[in-house]
Design a protein around this nucleic acid. Structure first.
Ligand SMILES: [Mn+2]
Ligand SMILES: [Mn+2]
Ligand SMILES: [Zn+2]
Ligand SMILES: [Zn+2]
Lengths: 146, 146
DNA sequence: TTGATACTGATAATCATTTTCAGAAAGAAG
DNA sequence: CTTCTTTCTGAAAATGATTATCAGTATCAA
């Protein structure tokens, strides 16, 4: 049977003596029910909309724990903001970002992944993680611009 | 015959009405003679060592222009600092970064580059640039750790 | 119920980068 | 060489995302 993110999270809190506080649960609730790439500000706004007492710092703190638990992943797109996406139950993937409309396309090419491994081996390098971000213009934006 | 970075830079300044000021030339001099990936602070220190009057803000300003001229490239390794590397006269390449000793290995795999193009085409996406950073542990560090 | 301890929201601090600004330098014209 | 306009400079202040601080509050095992 499938272990839910909820279960994984509970177990992580348990094992690390982290309390199941209300504000933390609220951030978790909003994050887990929003399937997009979220910035801290956006996450704060969404949480605040439903749970008006939430504090900005708490969102940062909660997301750090949610990442540590393996539920979320922090992404750096080089725009000066932290972004979060779902990790648990999601395959690794890379990102294609349209610099016009900011659309984000998740892509995965197993061959590219393999070649990175081969490349690393040639240097006796052991990969722990990688980041591939492709920037450009999406089909829609190309049409709109002629 | 080969057009030097110096020539390219002069032409860029000329065409954009940017003056050939002394401090700007000093930063250019240090950058062009340092073949490593430089942070702004490091660049400032190196420049200051030879030209004590240089200001920190001037290094930022000069590097922006040097990048615009196509001589340097700004890299974001996600460590909170801007890094600069030589662009003019250097082939595109990706980076492998050892998270232990911070060593930087420049790599290039033409097949990976091609597959990115193929991947983009499948989405009707036109690539303007990309960033591939591979993090892990280098051979040296693996030995030292047993 | 209680007591130790983790957690909270508000706020201040941090720190790389950017902006501001008054004085200095570049460079075109004469 | 002088003059004049405009760009440039260094120092210092501002910015803005993230982190740390702190006094009061909530959690939860006992
Ligand atoms: Mn994603
Ligand atoms: Mn490089
Ligand atoms: Zn687009
Ligand atoms: Zn290493």
């Amino acid at each position: 049977m499938k272990r839910s993110a909820r279960h994984i999270f509970d177990q992580y809190l348990q094992e690390n003596g982290i309390r199941r506080s209300k504000p933390r649960e609220q951030v978790f609730d909003i994050f887990i029910n929003t399937e997009t790439h979220l910035t801290v500000l956006k996450l704060y706004e969404l949480t605040k909309a439903r749970y008006p007492n939430i504090g900005y710092a708490t969102v940062y703190r909660a997301m750090k724990i949610i990442c540590d638990a393996g539920i979320a992943d922090e992404i750096n797109f080089g725009d000066g903001f932290k972004h979060y996406e779902h990790k648990y139950g999601h395959e690794h993937h890379d990102h294609m970002i349209c610099t016009e409309c900011k659309e984000l396309i998740e892509v995965l090419n197993p061959e590219i992944e393999e070649m990175q491994q081969a490349l690393a081996q040639a240097y006796d390098f052991t990969i722990t993680n990688h980041r591939l971000q492709i920037f450009g213009v999406c089909g829609k934006c190309k049409k709109e611009q002629g």
